[in-house]
Amino acid sequence: MSRITVRQMNFDFTEAIGRYWYGNSPFKTHFFNSITLLFPDGEQFMLRTVKRQLKEIDNPQLKQEASAFIGQEAQHAVQHEKFWNNLRQQGYKFDTYLRFLRFILFNVCENQLSIKFKLAMIAGVEHFTNAIADLVLREELFAEAEPKMKELFEWHSAEEIEHKTVAYDVFQNVTKNYIIRLLGIFIAYTFVLGFVSLGLVMMLYQDKKLLNIKVWQEMIQFFFTKEKFVFKVFLHSLEYFRTNFHPSQKDNLFLVKKVMHFS
């Protein structure tokens, strides 16, 4: 049996959720808003790629876990996309951003990359999201966020940790080529960081906060001095470069228990 549970969630993001729902911080709010804009289509790309590979997986346990991975990622896409209605009601416009994202994801990555490179990219993205998920739960990163958004990101983080080995194992089931693995994580980080940065700048610009000194001070604190987000994610990411790396080597499954009420 798969150790991964597909949870049917039904988040309701009411209009009462504030414009700056993360501790009244425009920077932190829009940083995670930009992640919420990226997730749904990113998840669709990943689940479709893994779904097409299912029939080629010869390990019954891995096939079960890959099916559960697909189920969890589908839920992540649906639940994050629900929050888009709130962003639109607050006056944000991001349809052009989504068209560009979908062109790169589906016309370029999905249609042009080989299955090896697509799976290597997905394994790299999963390593990145696992690094963020670890921080979210280990350091209670969303303690200052509005409860419903805290619940969304903590549930998502718990499931990222729960299925952290799947994408890597599916990639390894196709090829164990170290160079392709490294190229995959390079593509993944370039893609994620590029679109998160683009989304962040877009949201801050529309909010007339892009040139606000306080916002840039918040960024420096969050990334480098207080939460040290960049340093911690970077250190976690370095593990991927070991030749004998496997996601299971990171002992963080206990963090899932912090949000066991989602089970």
Rank of each mutant, 00 (worst) to 15 (best):
N212P: 02
N173Y: 02
F32Q: 00
V196M: 07
V215Q: 01
V256R: 07
A145R: 02
I104E: 03
E43T: 01
V230A: 15
I185C: 04
I104D: 02
R242K: 14
H246C: 04
V215N: 00
F128C: 04
S248V: 06
F103Y: 14
Y178V: 15
I122D: 03
M149N: 01
E239Y: 11
F231W: 13
I57D: 05
V233N: 07
M260F: 10
Q72R: 11
R7I: 15
S248Y: 02
F11Y: 15
K51W: 09
L193A: 14
E162H: 07
K257R: 15
G18W: 00
L101I: 02
N177F: 07
H246E: 10
E56M: 07
A77R: 07
H261M: 07
I185H: 01
L238I: 12
T29S: 06
V233E: 05
T225H: 03
F27T: 00
N24K: 14
T49W: 04
L235A: 13
D134I: 02
V174F: 13
V108P: 05
V78K: 14
Q44M: 05
V136R: 01
R242Y: 10
E239W: 08
F69D: 08
I161L: 12
P247F: 03
I104V: 15
I132D: 01
G91M: 05
H127T: 08
Q44L: 07
K116H: 11
V78Q: 13
I132R: 00
S2A: 13
K118T: 08
R52T: 06
K232L: 08
F254M: 13
D58E: 13
Q249G: 04
S237M: 09
V259S: 14
M46V: 09
E126N: 11
R88T: 10
Q217A: 04
A158F: 10
N86G: 03
Q89W: 03
K208F: 02
H30L: 01
S25T: 06
K214R: 14
L200Y: 00
H261A: 08
N111K: 15
K118N: 10
M203S: 13
Q206K: 04
K226W: 01
L37F: 06
N244L: 04
V6N: 07
P147E: 06
R99A: 12
E146W: 01
K148F: 02
V196K: 00
K116E: 14
I213F: 11
L238R: 06
F223D: 00
V78D: 10
F222G: 00
R52A: 09
L152D: 01
Q64R: 13
M46W: 03
N244G: 03
T129D: 11
L255A: 07
M202E: 04
R242G: 06
T165P: 01
V259A: 14
S67Y: 11
L210M: 08
R88D: 05
E151K: 14
R102S: 05
F100C: 04
F11C: 10
N86W: 01
I185P: 00
H261C: 04
Q72P: 11
A68T: 07
K116G: 08
I161Y: 02
T190E: 03
A77Q: 09
F11S: 06
K258T: 15
F128W: 12
K250H: 15
H80Y: 07
